[in-house]
Design a protein around this nucleic acid. Structure first.
Length: 603
RNA sequence: GGUCCCGUAGCUCAGUUGGAUAGAGCAACAGCCUUCUAAGCUGUGGGUCGCGCGUUCGAAUCGCGCCGGGAUCACCA
């Protein structure tokens, strides 16, 4: 982060440095070897040039080299007001007017940091990808938050983004919950049981697994091996029969399937809505799984893929250092990979994107590696445009979440818990007591969800992260509510300024004002906001934004604590600090939006 | 076993295209509300950056070798 700085100035400085070096040492120097960064906070200076790489040219010690470079640069660039040398580090100090004019000319720009021009590079972004048998849990929350935030970040960078969801709505596992429902459901509905649809389906899936296990145990007592028992249990045979019926379009089976899926979708939609995520298009595996077969057959025709004697079709990736991988079963039915091949093809035909991003857990790294390679071998133009955004698992203190062991953290329950905690905290602090009930509920929702989202998004996506339900999520310190609070605080300052007619106009200009260190720290952070958004997009990493906005809020709070704003008597200074505040609130608000977090105007 | 990812303070995490004395928050302790919102601010304590070797003026960051943790290598999805 400390390497980010204003690109315009960086360019000017590099050019000037090139000329100065040429003049001083009579030689060209590869400027890419020169590092410029923001000066560390404890040290006096704004930007730092590291001069060690120049020593071979200068034949002088680091201090002397830095000194003569600083002297020459100061003459060349008027915005440099002075410099300090520490060892081989040349610390440049810019004139206060430089920072102030930046503030004045940017604080009222609504789109500061965004690339408003639409690029001709469409991105299809897949996330969520639920299984209709399983209510959404904490792992899905990470997935959804990452996906949604990335869509916001890419959009801010000018990419047209299509958010898609791929619902896993077919296969033997779906038949299991159907079977359990047929056997033991007694016509129960979400309405009659007052359960969310997805929870109801989940209940029957769990019930199936329980009864199935019992059958396996019984069979093993009769002397079968575990594998044999798992293959021969009556329940699994029945489930397979349902799958066959489904694939044969048996009316009764299909209509139950439709009904149960509908219930699951209604439940998912409630969760998505509360979580604040949405999609432009929803794909269903039931609609795409057949397409993959065509691609596989095509591959056999092209002799890229091999058909074995039993009819199954494989790809040989041993030359790539991987194994052989099944693409179509001997009975002609498709596997996971077959479906994904079809889905990729369909997606390409629909949108012709320049990038297809899949937000999927790191447990599927191998799968996506293979998917890409298969499409490459098939000569598909979009193979290289596939990018698997692999994120780490969310672990609990006792280890990985296991649905079978009942250690999953349910998404709906977690959000409800966050809401209650937010309410409790707010009451405890004696805040929002004057809010009408409806407004108060909105506020608790914003804070509770803000805490949850920030907690998840501040962590580097690729890393596994730990979630401790007992410790719950903090509301103080490096948290969502802390940032929201800073926003609300500035907002209150703005309302006050408005009522006192102290709001600065949109074009502030003033020279000769002196900046305090606390003010300058905030300005420096505001200045790099455009680079932060770009970096987040380049790295597909919302944590970049999260960590930045925390730093900004913290820095602003320090400023707020030590310097008066509306109570400042000097009019120009008061205006300047107001502008700094307005600008900060705007950048905080936009950053939070990129993370899918709401900014309450009061809290 | 092969491949990939991770290992930084008691805990949760930043910092990793090589730069200065490795940073935050939580937890602990001590301060700051008659002045713009104390969900805030200030301070104290807390580190062999998993270990070793190497490259370099300079390594948490790069290379090699270990150790520890995780994922994955199904006619499951």
């Amino acid at each position: 982060m400390h390497k980010l700085l204003n690109p315009m100035f960086e360019k000017r400085l590099l050019e000037a440095a090139g000329q100065v070096i040429r003049n001083l040492y009579g030689q060209e120097f590869d400027l890419s070897k020169l590092t410029i960064e923001r000066t560390k906070k404890e040290i006096e200076g704004d930007y730092t040039l590291v001069v060690f790489p120049l020593l071979k040219l200068s034949h002088k010690n680091p201090e002397q080299t830095a000194g003569e470079l600083g002297e020459a640069l100061m003459k060349k660039l008027p915005e440099i007001s002075s410099y300090k040398v520490i060892k081989g580090f040349l610390n440049l100090i810019l004139a206060d007017d430089y920072w102030i004019s930046f503030l004045g000319s940017n604080f009222s720009k609504e789109d500061f940091g965004f690339s408003p021009v639409a690029r001709d590079e469409k991105v299809v972004l897949e996330y969520s990808s639920p299984n209709t048998n399983k209510p959404l849990h904490l792992g899905h929350i990470r997935n959804n938050l990452l996906g949604y935030s990335l869509s916001q970040i890419l959009t801010a960078n000018g990419f047209p983004v299509v958010k898609v969801n791929l619902v896993n709505d077919r296969g033997i596992h779906i038949c299991k919950s159907m079977l359990a429902y047929m056997k033991w459901g007694h016509g129960e509905t979400p309405k009659s049981s007052a359960m969310k649809g997805d929870k109801l389906i989940g209940k029957y899936y769990v019930l199936f697994e329980k009864k199935y296990k019992e059958e396996i145990r019984d069979l093993m007592e009769k002397g079968l091996t575990e594998d044999e028992a798992a293959q021969q249990a009556p329940l699994i045979l029945e489930a397979r029969e349902i799958l066959r019926k489904w694939e044969a379009h048996n009316h009764e089976t299909v209509s139950l399937w439709k009904q149960m899926n509908e219930w699951a979708y209604q439940g998912f939609n409630e969760t998505y809505k509360r979580l604040g995520v949405d999609f432009d298009h929803i794909y269903y595996e039931s609609q795409t799984y057949l397409l993959g077969k065509d691609l596989v057959i095509e591959g056999v025709d092209k002799a890229v893929l091999k058909r074995r004697d039993d009819g199954s079709i494989w790809i040989d990736l041993t030359s790539d250092g991987l194994d052989e991988k099944l693409l179509l079963r001997s009975d002609g039915t498709s596997v996971y990979m077959t479906q994904d091949l079809g889905t990729a093809q369909l997606r390409y035909e629909h949108y012709h994107p320049s990038q297809m991003i899949y937000v999927v857990g790191n447990e599927q790294n191998y799968h996506f590696d293979v998917l890409k390679r298969v499409l490459l071998k098939l000569g598909k133009p979009y193979a290289s445009r596939i990018f698997h955004l692999s994120y780490g698992m969310v672990e609990l203190p006792e280890g990985k979440m296991k649905s079978r062991e009942g250690t999953v953290v349910d998404a709906d329950e977690l959000m409800e818990e966050m809401y209650s905690t937010a309410e409790e905290m707010t009451r405890e602090l004696g805040k929002a007591s004057d809010f009408p009930q409806k407004e108060a509920r909105k506020l608790f929702e914003m804070i509770g969800l803000g805490a949850l989202k920030y907690y998840i998004l501040k962590v580097d996506p690729k890393k596994n992260m730990l979630f401790d339900p007992k410790e719950s999520i903090d509301f103080n310190g490096n948290t969502g509510p802390f940032i929201q609070y800073t926003f609300a605080r500035i907002n209150s300052l703005i309302s006050k300024a408005e009522s006192m007619h102290m709001m600065p106009g949109p074009d502030f200009q003033s020279t000769g004002l002196l900046l305090q260190p606390g003010e300058k720290d905030v300005v420096k952070l505001l200045m790099i906001y455009p680079q932060v958004i770009r970096q987040a997009a380049d790295e597909l990493n919302p944590a970049v934004v999260a960590n930045y906005v925390y730093e900004l809020a913290k820095s602003y709070n320090q400023f707020y604590q030590e310097l008066p704003v509306l109570k400042e008597e000097n009019t120009d200074l008061r205006q300047l600090r107001m502008i700094l505040s307005v600008f900060t609130a705007s950048v905080i608000g936009k950053s939070l939006k990129l993370l899918g977090i709401s900014s309450p105007s009061r809290m």
